[in-house]
């Protein structure tokens, strides 16, 4: 786990690398964007495969429905734009044109989360997972770093139907390696624990590992799970861990309502109720500021995860 900021990378970079790789290995992959080629990391694909790159100007709703049409002509479109647009502005096009027809479209949600920083709430997608998790046929992936983002983006081409991939702009620690397994739909246990399990996605996997390391010194045994695939949910692993540790904390760079925490609580509430604490943004819009200051401001750092762990252990 690299704490050296020089090695940190935005997960969007992994997404962009994957597009180029897909361009090389899969002739059916096409890339669509709306005036954000570089920002969403589609620029390299555009340069290398100009004939398979499609620009639609500032018109995301049109692009989303066009992607459905291209998939129905046999292509695998990657729709590249910011998460606020792909899951917000285009929600109904995603539902109606793409998901209802179960089109083989891959959707990027770039600039996911509060780490988007200085641009402020208009550009910080903190509701995306909740907004789209309810749409049938759609799969939802939130990679924890640039390497995992690359693996997830490449894997998505072979997963039939629509897949949403959330990535971020801000450089974050790279906590996986080329050898770390990535199995779509399968939670990855990074650390075994006896007292409590933290289930996290995105940058919060890193924050959860920090929290676990620190609490270990106090004699608290904390397991950490990278739940990169939020839908379909790996119910078996989550229920098993709830049984084993009897307490769950979830952590996401997203609203505490409707996201990963919501998905886990829905599952455990029905299958194996145990005390749960959800770390996320507490029903507030973001604000402008330095990215990592915002993480503190909105209570998304390892400190809040530690607090949540203590709280859930008290309730156990």
């Amino acid at each position: 786990m690299s704490k050296d900021r020089e090695n940190w990378r935005g997960s969007r970079d992994g997404f962009g690398e994957a597009l180029v790789k897909l361009g090389e290995i899969n002739p059916n992959v096409v890339v669509l964007t709306c005036d954000l080629s570089d920002s969403v990391r589609a620029e390299s694909f555009k340069k290398k495969f100009p004939d398979r790159f499609f620009q639609f100007g500032v018109a995301e709703q049109n692009m989303m429905s066009i992607a459905a049409g291209m998939s129905l002509s046999g292509y695998i479109p990657y729709v590249c734009t910011y998460a606020v647009f792909s899951t917000g502005r285009c929600w109904e096009q995603l539902r109606m044109s793409v998901c209802y027809s179960d089109c083989n479209v891959k959707i990027e949600g770039s600039h996911g989360g509060i780490l988007t920083g200085a641009d402020g709430a208009s550009h910080q997608a903190t509701e995306d997972i909740g907004a789209i998790r309810v749409i049938p046929n759609l799969k939802v992936v939130v990679p924890c770093d640039a390497i995992e983002a690359r693996k997830a983006t490449i894997a998505a081409a072979d997963i039939p139907g629509p897949v949403y991939i959330r990535v971020g702009r801000e450089p974050i620690p790279v906590i996986t390696t080329e050898e770390t397994p990535f199995a779509f739909g399968k939670a990855l246990v990074l650390r075994e624990g006896k007292d409590v399990t933290v289930i996290a996605c995105g940058v919060e996997v890193y924050e959860s590992l920090l929290a676990a390391e620190e609490l270990e010194k106090e004699g608290i045994s904390v397991g950490v799970v990278n739940l990169h695939t939020i839908k379909p949910l790996d119910s078996e692993t989550i229920v098993k861990l709830a049984k084993e540790t009897g307490a769950i904390v979830t952590a996401e760079e997203h609203q505490a309502i409707g996201g990963l925490g919501g998905a886990v609580a829905e599952l455990l509430g029905q299958r194996y109720p145990v005390p749960i604490e959800i770390v996320g943004i507490k029903d507030k819009f973001g604000v402008s500021g330095p990215s990592w200051e915002l993480m503190k401001h909105f209570g998304l750092t390892s400190n809040e995860i530690k607090e949540a762990i203590r709280k859930v252990l008290d309730r156990k």
Binding site: V30, D51, R52, F54, Q61, N62, M63, M64, S65, I66, A67, A68, G69, M70, S71, L72, S73, G74, Y75, P77, Q93, M96, S97
Partner: peptide, 15 residues
């Protein structure tokens, strides 16, 4: 939405 879907199909077929 249907016209956009048609645009996508037309682009794909031409491609």
């Amino acid at each position: 939405q249907g016209l956009s879907v048609g645009v996508g199909m037309a682009l794909g077929l031409r491609q």
